[in-house]
Write a protein that binds this DNA or RNA. Structure first.
Lengths: 363, 363
DNA sequence: TTGAAAGCGCTAACAG
DNA sequence: CTGTTAGCGCTTTCAA
């Protein structure tokens, strides 16, 4: 039993291929009568178009590519979910790839997706998106970047990392901390670790606290995973900076870090306070509930997908790029030892809210 | 600047399309000399085949479809990672879809993937795979099912849920518990909640403990998320069964459950012990580190992908189905109040080990 | 309003 | 060994 094609339908309806195609694609030059007739025949015979054939002749498919750095980081979970939902709403499919911090994989996947004629791309890039911009333009494939490692002229949704870090460190300072460490993800001058580093330094500066190199640790592989934080914490403790608080690049690193501290018999927050970044879903359920800088992840994915479809549907002029910058928010829990412990029951459904974006548009 | 096609290559090389195709596809009837020449021209011109055209004419693509129930459940993270890696090794792309426990979405996605001529499918199904078997056979698309909700004649990788549950409950009994509750995910007779329920009952029976209906709670939506566990716990506590221990369908439910207990001022494990299922990555880092039944997730994904490619590459006879059943293992941590608290530093790299499968093959 | 016909880029008989 | 040719299923001019 072979699948039915437009040819079959044409035969049954006694019309030409072109007419069937017009009916199926809602194209103008066709009489309502024949259109209805064809549509009826199509649905009665369970016709569904072959996406490959359509893609080949149109040079474009209904697939959207998603390129992620680390699909296992729960930070991306709500992002994927949001994107997936939007993509589905638009009648498209989602192709998810995972680069695992590998540049070669990143390039390979982007190329592969382009070859597969995706009609759009959402990329959480490792390297400067600039690298891909020309290619994308040449192929006329719209793309939205998530937290790109540098400012470029493209559609992207980002987070105000400087503010987030600043708020976190500032909070620690208010609590009386003077020797605050920063565990970077990879080199401190690599974006976005760099921006968070900046926020960290600014907060120190504004409070007249000295900056000390011993208090900054850069993780080796830069993958931002739990084990990295674990190792980094040991390194930090052996540096002799005697931190009383640690601000980490992300929650996973914070988790690893707290594990190391625990193992060393150092109490959190009594001996050392810890603040993370992201507010992944588990942050509130941890051994020591984590104070962290919340990124509205679901919203981030939702906005990215929206921006992408705006472009795909041609609702925006070619050079009218949008850079949406989301404002992160400090969520105070136990790990920083504040008197104000808000370890409340989470608003479980919060990430589903379709509230108006708190986003602000930069420039 | 248009992309180069085999036509161009044929022209440049002064040969026919067929010859180019033969060179590019490593087909036999071609002389080494022309083959090399063509390959050189191709690579010098940065040629890469159009997957859509190829897919159209072959009726098959290099894409593999993955159908998940809940992409946000960290249980799937290592599974996705394993599959993704294998798929990449085989030079294929992965199409990930997320059904979010919706039957319509499940059907829709499977159909859509088939229409897109994926060359294989890995499905974590909501409903009985039987439903899809005929369709898959007709289309000749191999598929591997993850934890299918019933035994069917197909390739699948599963977990010995009965044993896992039995071990968990048995352990609680050994610790002296007599009133042990079970929080099911959805109806207790729905697979795999049913199997875990069975293990639970068997353990009670073997230890001459009475079964009490008040001690079983079925969650409403059956999505197995944190909030469900949270609500279920309240329901359980109001049932009057006075449990001293709770065995939950999965870790997320356990987390929600522990949150509810905490809110009620009930201590874990002193007042009530809790045991989960899955051993998601975060289980060990929780407020109260979770005793749970570990499923070797990475291995599960790895095996699934291996089985799939065995089929795709025709390495197995049509009716030689494999059902790999992984053996879960109880991981004892603090939440069950054992004297033997193994809250050790995790073997961070453990899931990457490519150790020989501990799997056993059933029938 | 409809149809004929030429592709989209590649594969796969079938001849030579 | 190599070339010719006919598709794969659909879109899209261009005529009618």
């Amino acid at each position: 039993m072979k699948k039915i094609t437009i040819k079959d339908i044409a035969r049954i309806a006694g019309v030409s291929l072109a007419t069937v195609s017009r009916a199926l694609n809602n194209l103008p030059r066709i009489s309502p009568a024949t259109k209805e007739k064809i549509l009826r025949i199509a649905s009665r015979n369970g016709y569904s178009p072959n996406p490959l054939a359509r893609g080949l002749s149109k040079g474009k498919t209904n697939n959207i590519g998603l390129v992620l750095i680390d699909i296992t980081n729960p930070f991306y979970s709500p992002i994927i979910q949001a994107i997936e939902r939007k993509v589905e709403e638009e009648g498209c499919n989602l192709l998810v790839t995972n680069t695992e911090h590998s540049l070669t994989k990143e390039e390979k996947y982007i190329n592969s997706l382009l070859e597969n004629r995706v009609s759009g791309l959402i990329i959480s890039p490792i390297q400067n998106p600039q690298r891909y911009l020309e290619l994308l333009k040449k192929r006329k494939i719209p793309a939205v970047f998530l937290c790109p490692p540098s400012e470029v002229k493209c559609d992207c949704v980002d987070v105000d990392n400087i503010k987030g870090a600043y708020d976190a460190v500032n909070h620690l300072i208010r609590l009386g901390h003077k020797r605050i460490a920063y565990i970077s993800r990879g080199l401190r001058h690599r974006h976005p670790a760099c921006q968070r580093f900046l926020g960290y330094r600014n907060a120190l500066r504004d409070n007249n606290l000295p900056f000390s190199d011993e208090l900054v640790v850069e993780t080796i592989t830069g993958q931002g995973k739990i084990e990295e934080g674990y190792q980094a914490a040991f390194k930090l403790l052996s540096n002799g900076g005697n931190p009383t608080a640690i601000f980490t690049f992300n929650d996973l690193i914070a988790i690893g870090c707290m594990r190391a501290l625990k193992e060393k018999g150092i109490r959190v927050p009594e001996d050392i306070a810890v603040v993370g970044f992201d507010d992944i879903g588990f942050a509130q359920f941890l051994d020591v509930p984590l104070t962290t800088v919340k990124i509205p992840e679901y919203e981030m994915g939702d906005i990215a997908a929206t921006l992408l479809f705006e472009r795909i549907n041609g609702e925006r002029k070619a050079n009218n790029y949008k850079r949406i910058c989301l404002i992160p928010e400090l969520v105070i829990r136990k790990s920083c030892g504040s008197r104000f412990i808000h370890d409340l029951i989470p608003d479980f459904a919060s990430h589903r809210k379709t509230t108006e974006s708190q986003a602000i548009k930069h420039r």
